[in-house]
Design a protein around this nucleic acid. Structure first.
Lengths: 153, 153
DNA sequence: CTAAGAACTTCAAGTGCTCGAAGTCAGGGC
DNA sequence: GCCCTGACTTCGAGCACTTGAAGTTCTTAG
């Protein structure tokens, strides 16, 4: 298996893009021991992530998203190391993460609408279109009420 | 009329409940000048919020939710009172924000695809479907390759 | 009226990143 | 070869809250 399965390697930037955590956070997590030390390029000293590292990071990202403090994480990461026997738990956490991402996507769309609305609003103000201004202000208030649960993060 | 139209007054706790921001954050925002100084009870020295304060806080909460830094907020909050003269600057700030949100949306979609792939992967692992596992690992690699051009193209 | 307790006050320190500075390293053009 | 660009490295400071301590004030029950 190992000979044919050329393990793909990732730079810190690719790992960041796939897991949704900034590179700085990946280094931070490694520095405080939340994730295991990542392999380094022989000559460069740069971090080299493999699939296993990414799985671990995804796991940590799930824990972080549920509000767990970084001091409590190492224990739970150890559980995640157990491999195939832990597949069920992995799926459970990843599914929860999927739902969070969906919520995040919805909130993002809402924010995009809100910003677009505000741009319209200022265009109307600049044009002196008072009727349109009033209309847009009303819509903005409606949207503002919906954007409440964006206080986390 | 105005005497009877009791302009409702709120404690910091009520203001927090209505705006969705913790009381500590309201004090923090006031301390750094993001919101105007709030009136105080004559004898107690406790903060007393009125409707206008709440509108301003809601507005700031929206800015915070869209990712604006607290340093940029005072200008933006002040501009809200200035009317048409500041429309150009408002539009400029909001358009920049719109572009940030667009980037964020693309990254979010990428993460969603990755998580979905990982769920498939663990299902295949649980089922002992090694061929499928290999296939999905390959797809993860392909997904990672898409990240690279996204940063510079 | 007084005493207990909840809720407010300020100030300081902690948290979880996040950014900037200064230096190292890989790849490409001359 | 040699330099340039750009991505990586560590480290320490900064940011946006957040929490804790210590004290004051409002409220309520006896």
């Amino acid at each position: 298996m190992s000979a044919l399965t050329a393990r793909h390697e990732y730079t810190i930037k690719e790992a960041a893009a796939l897991t949704g955590l900034p590179a700085s956070t990946l280094r931070y997590y490694e520095s405080i021991g939340v994730i295991a030390p990542v392999g380094r390029g022989a000559s460069s000293g740069h971090r080299v992530y493999d699939e296993e590292d990414l799985d671990q990071i995804m796991w940590v990202a799930c824990l972080a998203a549920t509000g767990m403090s970084v001091r409590d994480m190492p224990k739970y990461v150890a559980n995640g190391q157990l491999g195939p026997c832990a597949a069920g738990e992995q799926i459970e956490l990843l599914t929860a993460q999927q739902q969070r991402l969906e919520v995040e996507a919805k909130q993002l769309v809402l924010r995009q609408r809100y910003v677009a609305l505000k741009i319209d609003y200022w265009h109307a103000v600049a044009a002196g279109d008072d009727g349109h201004v009033e209309l847009l202000l009303g819509e903005a208030r409606t949207l503002a009420d919906e954007v409440k649960p964006a206080s986390k993060r």
